[in-house]
């Protein structure tokens, strides 16, 4: 004889559903975290046993030697992208969020601009690289050099920064704005002192993604930056520049063990760079958000 009442049956069904959801969530987590861990472990395991510190202090000799030229080159490229794409992307995001609101201007220039940036972010990077090669390196006679590389990479990552900035600004609570307006703060002052400060974590995340992409891209750089074993020079054009991803890719395709070690080293250094970026950005966010509403 059954003693399970209808209400108990419902409870059991709910439990089963809940368990299914939990396992699905766990599976997704493993699906995301697993490959990332695998990647990190493989790189570390392959690079560390053959690690020599002079990789950091000597330049490359093609399939052997160090990576100093590539490390400095990647740092220069990331810094350049931070300046160019960071400025343009954040300003564009502020524009989308504050000035181009559809409800304010009716038709909104914002819609066109926003669509344009979304199209831009969907472009294959190698196509952008080729455009940069034809238009800048050949068309403007800049040759393989830093400036076309920076412009093309910035073009690629501006949408990420703009989007992140826009959504971060939109999430700033209305009551902060109302409070600021009621005190007679000007819109610009409110934006600088209240809105941007509160939106900073989101903006930093966008910039972080942009910099990681800039550091990790290969295809557009092959077309624009060229490659060189020399250290980066002060010239923006006419001088090719080295970068880590080139060595990760090229030396892995070489037959010698020595070349493979260079490839693993380059990958490890890139990983460490991204890690340092992550930690730095978390520190910046923690320092500036210590008075935020969530941090009681």
């Amino acid at each position: 004889m059954s003693i399970i009442s209808p209400s108990m049956q419902r409870t059991r069904a709910r439990r089963v559903r809940e368990m299914l959801f939990r396992s699905a969530a766990m599976a997704s987590l493993v699906f995301v975290v697993g490959p990332a861990m695998w990647l990190v472990i493989e790189v570390v395991v392959r690079a560390v046993p053959h690690w020599h510190w002079n990789v950091l202090t000597t330049v490359s000799q093609g399939t052997s030697g160090g990576l100093e030229n590539a490390i400095l080159g990647t740092l220069v490229i990331m810094f350049g992208v931070l300046i160019i794409a960071g400025t343009i992307g954040i300003l564009a995001g502020i524009h989308f969020a504050e000035l181009a609101r559809p409800r304010r201007s009716g038709k909104a220039s914002g819609a066109v601009l926003r669509t344009a940036t979304e199209v831009l972010s969907g472009f294959p990077s190698i196509v952008l690289g080729y455009v940069g090669y034809i238009a800048l390196c050949v068309g403007l006679h800049w040759g393989f050099s830093l400036l076309p590389a920076l412009l093309i990479l910035s073009l690629m990552v501006v949408p990420y920064i703009a989007k992140a900035t826009e959504s971060a600004i939109r999430q700033v609570p209305t009551n902060y704005r109302e409070g600021a307006e009621a005190l007679g703060m000007s819109p610009g002052y409110m934006l600088r002192r209240i809105v941007l400060k509160s939106a900073l974590p989101g903006i930093v995340t966008g910039v972080l993604i942009a910099l990681s992409i800039a550091g990790g891209e290969t295809a557009p750089l092959l077309y624009t930056a060229g490659i060189t074993n020399n250290l980066p020079s002060a010239s923006l054009i006419h001088q090719p520049i080295g970068y880590l991803t080139y060595y990760v890719w090229t030396d892995y395709n070489q037959p010698t063990n020595e070349a493979h070690y260079v490839s693993y080293d380059a990958a490890l250094i890139l990983l460490v760079m991204v890690l340092v970026l992550l930690v730095t950005s978390r520190i910046i966010v923690a320092r500036t958000q210590r008075h935020a509403e969530g941090n009681r």
Partner: peptide, 13 residues
Amino acid sequence: GMLFQRPNPFPMS
């Protein structure tokens, strides 16, 4: 000046 229904301090000290 104005004071609102819900307290709305800014995210600063």
